[in-house]
Design a protein around this nucleic acid. Sequence first.
RNA 1: GGCGCAUUCGUCUAGUGGCCUAGGACACCGCCCUCUCACGGCGGCGGCACGGGUUCGAAUCCCGUAUGCGCCUCCA
Length: 420
Amino acid sequence: MPVRVRMAPSPTGLLHIGNVRTALFNWLYARHEGGEFRLRIENTDTSREVAEAVDHIQESLRWLGLDWDGPHTFQLDRIDDCRRVAEQLVAEAKAYEDEGAIRFRMPDEGSTGWDDVVRGRVEIPNETIEDLVLVRSDGRPTYNFASPLEDVWDGITHVIRGEDHISNTPKQINIIRAIGAEPPVYAHVPNVAGADGKKLSKRHGAVTVAEFRRDGYLPEALLNFLALLGWAPDGETTIMDREELVRRFELTRVSPSSAQFDYAKLDWLNGMYMRALSPQELAHRLVLWLGENGYDWDAELVARTAPLVQEKISRLAEFPAFAGFFFGEVEPDAGNLDGGGPMLAAAEEALASLEPFEAATIESALRGKAEELGLKPRQAFQPIRVAITGSKVSPGLFESIELLGRETTLSRLRAARAAF
RNA sequence: GGCGCAUUCGUCUAGUGGCCUAGGACACCGCCCUCUCACGGCGGCGGCACGGGUUCGAAUCCCGUAUGCGCCUCCA
């Protein structure tokens, strides 16, 4: 039987990164097995539904490149089917009415178990399972009723979901058996926690896909990082592109213990991906990011600065602060210029008529002046850097000067001298 | 409280009875490179939760304890 899995988010807001990790495992498994990955919106709790959520979820998945098969479906569309099944169960005395709601009669003795792909055999005593509400008194089916029913109707072969659903599983298995169907294979993947071991939330940093995107992470880097949270192909490999991830992913190698989200490692990995991009591609990503975040910066100039920042920043969002001096005026902090007066004057003199005005000639001219003044390179160049870029940290100075051009360079040097 | 799940360096992990004086990566520290910051290179610090078994031999198997997490909603 071909593999068919699904992602079943509830439309209550932006897509949480923990849900994405679970979705990724589903997607990787489906693609690895040549099966299908479906998207189902679990919207039976209309009171919590957020209007734009469905669009947000799809946009986030698309940005990450997690494509789903077929149209997305809504749980609410099958509300009548669910109700019919509930009535049938009542007719068969497998369920009963309770203050307007319909409850399922769980077995009282023995236990309900399954062979979890990630955890092995899990066995829950039936006496600890409550008779669960299938249909609310207002007629809407509950999640624990609708979800397993839809899994059956959709022909889902493997339910890959978070470990917080472990205790729901015996309930759902009993419902599936009650309607005479065969339960799917279950795989409960570990949760993703924050640095304190608690559920990943806002206070830990970015948690929604939209936030990671805004913070300048590359989707392929985020995907690579997420895949490694609870799974590893071996003990060595860290960087894997989408193709390799799909090729090597094994559900049976997913770890049963929960993992903490390490933002520092994500930053490192994102930097690795940014450096691996061609300068043209990096420029393209930067232009897109800038556009999405309200910067109306010249695309051609962005393309020319991209090579200068490629090894310096690890997220797209660092670009404005790091390379903004190419796109607008600077206000050097006079405190960072101290003692640089003579060198600034010397630089102005050296660059005024330098030909050609290129990084190599600029460098040798400035080094010559530094030597004349008896200054160490660091002492000599730092005031120039501050004057030109407005910061003590910047891309390579000589390349930056070349790109900035003679006119702008000289005027910034003059402005800095005037600041004394 | 009940039930369940989990437990290898600070973090992500490799490890399925001898290849482990436990390997890799991030972070951290030091050195090198160097116009700043990075990148890169080299080196260092650092771990099998605890206690019992089983076995010639256990990070690996079993039991218990501890700790963490999840669920116990007419939420999903």
